[in-house]
């Protein structure tokens, strides 16, 4: 690619005194508050406050999600509480390496990576860190795409609890961590949605002197 080192100068709607709609791509007058084509709201000054708010909320509820049990298994009168990490260890011990890897990836690696990436993007925009090529844009796309897939663990708990109900022999019930994990996923999704990718480019156009 010819422009991997620096981003090429491009006329933006912002520079032309227009306001672009993120939903449908229409150019609107600078004074417009809703899009003429699709009626979506046009943010006046895309800020980072909302991003930080959702991100911190997501990080806070991720703590109880890891401390409290996700799954409560009862077999022959014995009760066992499983946290997220405990579930991964169980799978490894039973030899299900691939599934253990998927669960570890979906419930620990991806959420933590998302926190880090969103915080990095917000800081990079805020402090106008110099940008080379498209790395930040790619990171944003990956975070946007992958966010919802963390919900997988909550659904696994739901299915197991619905299915494994054999009175005395074995029952599985959801733990309170399922709620905080689901909240954490939802909050980070909202943080990613609140982040306006145009800020990545705008920060690169006017680097701090």
């Amino acid at each position: 690619m010819a422009h991997t080192r620096t981003t090429q100068p491009v006329l933006t709607a912002h520079a032309a005194g227009l306001r672009g709609c993120r939903t449908c791509g229409r150019a609107n007058a600078a004074s417009a508050t809703t899009c003429r084509r699709c009626g979506a709201g046009l943010s006046h000054v895309p800020g980072l406050q909302l991003v930080w708010a959702w991100l911190i909320a997501g990080m806070v509820v991720y703590v109880p999600a890891n401390v409290y049990p996700m799954l409560r298994t009862q077999t022959m009168g014995r009760t066992q509480d499983n946290t997220i990490l405990g579930g991964v260890f169980d799978l490894v011990q039973s030899g299900y390496w691939l599934v253990a890897f998927i669960v570890f990836f979906a419930s620990i690696a991806i959420p933590v990576a998302k926190f880090v990436v969103i915080a990095y993007l917000a800081l990079a925009v805020q402090w106008r860190w110099p940008m080379r090529g498209h790395a930040r844009h790619r990171l944003y796309e990956v975070v946007e795409f992958i966010g919802r897939w963390s919900m997988i663990d909550v659904f696994v708990v739901a299915i197991l609890s619905a299915l494994v109900q054999f009175n005395l022999a074995a029952t599985v019930a959801p733990g309170i961590a399922a709620v905080s994990f689901a909240l954490s996923v939802a909050f980070t999704m909202l943080a990613a949605q609140a982040f306006d990718p145009r800020l990545i480019w705008r920060a690169a156009e006017s680097p701090m002197q």
Binding site: A16, L18, T23, G25, R26, A27, A29, P197, W201, R202
Partner: peptide, 17 residues
Amino acid sequence: PGDSTAGLVVCPTCDAL
């Protein structure tokens, strides 16, 4: 601000016009 903007497209990700 009227139909003069109708023939334009704004990139939803990077704001290019």
